[in-house]
Simulated assay, not measured.
Amino acid sequence: MADNDVVDPPTTMTAVVCHAPENYRLEQVGTPQAGAGEALVKVEAVGICASDLKCYHGAAKFWGDENRAAWAETEVIPGHEFVGRIVSLDDEAAQRWDVAVGDRVVAEQIVPCGECRYCQRGQYWMCGPHIMFGFKRKTPGGMASYMVFPREARVHKISGDVPPAHAAFAEPLSCALHAVERANIVFEDVVVVAGCGPIGLGMIAGAAAKSPAAIVALDMAPAKLELAKKCGATHTVNIAEQDPLPLVQELTGGYGADVYLEGTGHPSAVLQGLNLLRKLGTYVEYSVFGSDVTVDWSIISDDKELDVLGAHLGPHCWPAAIRMIESGTLPMDEICTHQLPLSQFQQGLDLVAAGDASIKVSLIPE
């Protein structure tokens, strides 16, 4: 069957369903149907994100604690890094997204309401209701044979020549590029990137596109550090063996890094970044943390007067991420290390949790 051939979907499909933290099951469920202004998509690949893993393990960020209400919901199909082909849609959806049956598409992970203060101001990625694929019952995710793109979804076409797992990497890459945009990197900057996982490697590639003076990649895995060089890092430091501070000082005449991009989600990386930065430097935090992080805030204020910025999702960066993937400039075969059938979702989660045997793990629906 050719890539653009479409067959009628079955009435039931295989899907991973979240019933509670650490209670995800492979089940047969009804195949969804697209309503007015929506599209039915046959999923080709779905990546497993670190946030998927934290949600699986019950992090308070998702399931709440004494200080916050739960955000994630049960009876939901997970997965927000996905790619697929359009099976059916009406004229309204085709015109809105400029797509047709058979097109390969990705959708941004957030489904903005279009009505809240943030959406009305063009800041859709901070949408008040914050409905995201794979975490809410209203928007089931991509760990299934089929999924529906609702009319509020932000849809992008991607080449059919790109392997499915590579195409699904558009989501984490767009997030990484947004973090780079937040940093406002200029030519003379020395940039430090903490972590050489999917987000960190994307940060390195994005930072390299800005042509700074140097990009220093930090990680504890030699193989990931070698891959960081292929993505554009000029220097690497194995922090299990070496303190990165002397190298950073050497590169900056003793002042410290201009920009620090945090992509590990490990509490120790926060203080590391504050210490590596020069006065008036820029810290960009992307990671989702599994627990609270405590630092001496006087480093940020009295000591260095740092610009500390958050980064969330990948607004306005999806076209650039797609172009980067389609260009073939990234070592995607080495980034996308594992593609498993959907039935092996637990093995996929375990691979991501181990951290040392994989970089990007994707599930391929049968």
Rank of each mutant, 00 (worst) to 15 (best):
P244E: 07
G232M: 07
G273N: 11
K229R: 15
A207M: 12
E262Y: 01
G263L: 01
P244Q: 09
Q272T: 14
Y255I: 04
S211F: 15
A221L: 15
G232L: 08
Y260C: 02
H235G: 03
L225M: 07
A207G: 10
A223D: 13
I239K: 06
V248E: 02
V248T: 01
V248F: 09
L251V: 00
A233C: 04
M220G: 13
V216W: 05
Y255A: 14
Q242L: 00
E241P: 04
V216I: 13
K224G: 01
A223P: 09
T264G: 05
V248H: 05
L247N: 03
S211G: 12
Y260S: 00
L218N: 06
L245E: 02
N275P: 10
P267V: 02
A221S: 14
G273W: 11
Q272N: 15
E250K: 13
A208F: 13
G253V: 02
P246L: 10
S268P: 05
L247A: 01
V216K: 03
V216T: 05
L271M: 14
L247I: 03
N238K: 12
A221V: 15
M220H: 11
L274G: 10
Y260I: 03
T236Q: 09
A228T: 05
N275R: 15
I239L: 01
E262A: 01
I239F: 10
Q242K: 15
A217S: 09
E250W: 11
P212A: 11
G253S: 04
E226V: 10
A213K: 15
I239T: 13
H266A: 14
